[in-house]
Design a binder for these strands. Structure first.
Lengths: 238, 238
DNA sequence: TTGGGAATACTTGTATGCAAGTATGTAGGT
DNA sequence: ACCTACATACTTGCATACAAGTATTCCCAA
């Protein structure tokens, strides 16, 4: 029997979750994905279905189903009769994720520029305002929550609700980087400025400019990649 | 015990498949996806894990895992304690699939236009030639195989191997339509002509023209949608 | 000391058993 | 005739047992 690794949080599902109809599989998937994205599970780390099941207070079945889904996300690699490993970050995986995210979100924001009403634009600006507030208050996690909310809204305004969740599922490797790159001072200010550029283009109904601004914004995170690779070389593939 | 529905093929996995390392889950996923795309499983049809497991000669476990994956593809709907159903075709799902496919493949073909070598272009043209041949020979299934191969090559030339499989997984609803729309005479000729337009743009290294031609090509299948909806109203959502 | 081999303890893949909930069909009462 | 209640047979979600394979470890022999 492997001892429970105490440097990891207890992930057990609450009774409230069960009552709310959420099933164990979804809960496990979310918990494991969060752990990987936040690098609580470090790239390269070996996982064990049995161990995870114990930790999460469920059986192997929902753990397995969650891991299979995470493999589709390229966040784990499952080797039969050998083990399951958190994937290391790779340039190819990052490039692919960036490609998918740019393709989907830029196409979405083009459609959004054609469709957004003044009320929609006001709502988007409200999200940016709240983003400024929580950042001023030093609540970094909530800043990122609002960041996701903004990008989701941009996607949803395209009329294609599939765009955001699909982009997110493909962006696992990128999000790991994002979490690690919260370092240099003006980073946040620049992000907010770029958000406003996209929203301005939406207000004026200019798809080309909206796409251009969003694409540049989405490429910002890549700028911190060399630094992260230097400070965490063990997270990356050879 | 429900009697085995004899109007469906025996899907049992061969020993060779097992020896080749393919696992039951992947086999079941492929078999079920093909059955749904080809409308051998009709939209709205109810499926039973137990029944499918028996038919496929495996246990419920790999069947369950395949069905969960098919739910991600929006090809089945799983209702706890009630049943699993093949989704009906919906305008929203088709629009979403079209959006994803256009976004990914058009972005890919733009990159391909920048990167394709003369040898790459020759190979693409070879695929179109073979497409003409198998169509002349009346081998419709192989025609579609080559169609997929061509689009896959276009995607792969972008350098982002993720583009094609992701586009395919998102295109389940579209592919069901494609299978049903093999009716009017000049359809195939038009498709081949449009393929050549895309390849020409690649040869000349013109991303804008390649994207434009591919987008128009991808929208072709939507033209047959009203006809299909008229001839198979029971396949569609209200 | 070193090398080889078997026992062991793990891994994932699959099969099966149990729990909880829903639709249906039937029997009995009104 | 019709409506209600209950038994039944199904469903999926989850837990667990077994199968097959691999890495490690430890013991024994040379």
């Amino acid at each position: 029997m492997v001892a429970v690794n105490t440097d990891m949080p207890d992930m057990r599902m609450s009774i409230a979750d069960r009552a709310a109809g959420r099933n164990a599989r979804g809960h496990v998937y979310t918990a494991l994905r969060d752990a990987i994205i936040s690098t609580a599970f470090t790239p390269g780390q070996r996982l064990s279905e049995t161990d995870l099941a114990e930790r999460l207070g469920v059986s192997r079945t929902p753990v397995r189903e969650a891991l299979v889904r995470l493999r589709d996300d390229r966040l784990v690699e499952i080797v039969p009769q050998l083990g399951t490993y958190v994937t290391r970050i790779s340039r190819q995986a990052i490039g692919d994720a960036q490609f998918v995210r740019e393709s989907l979100e830029c196409a979405a924001v083009r459609a959004a520029a054609e469709r957004a009403s003044p009320a929609d634009v006001l709502e988007l600006e409200g999200v940016v305002v709240r983003q400024r507030e929580v950042f001023a208050a030093g609540e970094v996690d909530r800043f990122y929550d609002f960041d996701d909310a903004l990008h989701r809204s941009l996607c949803d305004l395209s009329g294609h609700g599939i765009a955001w969740p699909l982009s997110q599922r493909a962006s696992g490797h990128l999000n790991r980087i994002r979490r690690l790159s919260l370092t240099y001072p003006n980073y946040i200010d620049e992000m907010i400025e770029e958000h406003l550029l996209v929203i301005d283009a939406l207000r004026r109904g200019e798809p080309d400019e909206a796409e251009r601004a969003l694409r540049e914004h989405l490429r910002m995170v890549l700028g911190s990649l060399p630094d992260i690779e230097r400070s965490h070389p063990e997270y990356f593939e050879s």
